[in-house]
């Protein structure tokens, strides 16, 4: 029973990994930029919630109403003012810039909040669970998984049907041709980055809620997990992030059955195995990485 339990928990954990990977996947899919600051930005968003809860008395969930739009706006500006310039310099420049950001954020957070864990209270949501067939499932992981499915379906629909979603796919295909159609590709890029930042903000707050709080350097773990999720699932597919997340989540929880110390290591080894034997990911078709 404990094995089945581990698999169920792993699948639900995969929902969280999928949410945290979406932003990385979108930014790479549309702009071919790998955002090394992805994890640090998640944690920044979680600290945004911490700050709002402290200063305004908002709850964790209602703080999302502020944090998500603010992070989206930050993404828009960062793309327009900084990353767009970096892309025009060299292939390495956007990597160096985002890595620089990933160093600045946690150190600034230490200075502003100390390196202690900051709590993100959610009432009793984190501890409540529902039981079915002898397996107790946490309400929070269940909710997270539900959010992941709805979010991915929504984004997929947006990209397939909405005008700006269509322009994002067109920009990913051929940004120069898009400009000849009267569309400023830089605006499209900034919109895509804004969406990516909105999802990573949500992921960051969910991370804090799951863990019971956030610490400044947590982003160094979350960026790697998000990245592994993208690669395992296969690049260029949003549903792939859910598959990648589930594979990674189940691997980790099964690893945890052996020893509480090894889930991260086992997950990383799973990632390396995928890299060695299925380099295009589980759902991947073409070589893009």
């Amino acid at each position: 029973m404990s094995w089945l339990n581990a698999v169920v928990q792993g699948v639900l954990l995969g929902g969280f990994f999928a949410i945290s990977a979406l932003g990385l996947s979108i930014v790479f899919g549309v702009m071919r930029i790998v955002n090394l600051a992805h994890g640090a930005l998640m944690i920044l968003a979680a600290y945004g919630s911490v700050l709002l809860i402290e200063r305004t008395g908002l709850g964790t969930w209602s703080s999302l109403l502020v944090v998500v739009p603010v992070m989206a706006a930050l993404g828009y500006l960062l793309q327009r003012l900084v990353l767009q310039r970096a892309v025009s310099i060299s292939e390495l420049a956007p990597l160096m810039v985002t890595f620089g950001i990933s160093i600045m954020i946690p150190n600034a957070l230490v200075e502003l909040f100390t390196s202690d864990v900051q709590a993100l209270p959610t009432g009793n949501l984190a501890t409540r669970s529902v039981s079915a067939g002898g397996i107790a499932v946490g309400l929070l992981p269940l909710l997270t998984f539900g959010i992941a499915v709805v979010l991915i379906a929504g984004l997929q629909l947006f990209l397939a049907r909405a005008r700006s979603g269509r322009l994002m796919r067109a920009a990913a295909d051929d940004s120069q041709a898009l400009r000849l159609m009267g569309v400023d590709n830089r605006v499209v890029y900034a919109q895509a980055t804004a969406i990516a930042f909105a999802t990573l903000a949500l992921a960051g707050v969910l991370f804090g809620v799951r863990q019971g709080g956030v610490a400044p350097f947590d982003g160094q773990v979350t960026v790697l997990l998000a990245f592994e999720t993208v690669i395992i699932g296969g690049l260029g597919s949003l549903w792939g992030t859910l598959v990648g997340g589930i594979v990674l989540g189940v691997t980790q929880t099964l690893g945890g059955e052996f020893s509480p110390e090894v889930p991260l290591l086992v997950g990383n080894l799973m990632f390396l195995a995928v890299l060695a034997f299925r380099p295009n990911g589980i759902l991947g078709r073409e070589t893009r990485a």
């Binding site: 269509r166 322009l167 067109a170 120069q176 041709a177 159609m181 009267g182 569309v183």
Partner: peptide
């Protein structure tokens, strides 16, 4: 220079941007 991953109709709609 069509957008290869878009359908014909989507290409036309992008053209109407």
């Amino acid at each position: 220079r069509l957008f290869p991953t878009l359908t014909v109709e989507e290409n036309l709609l992008v053209g109407g941007s």
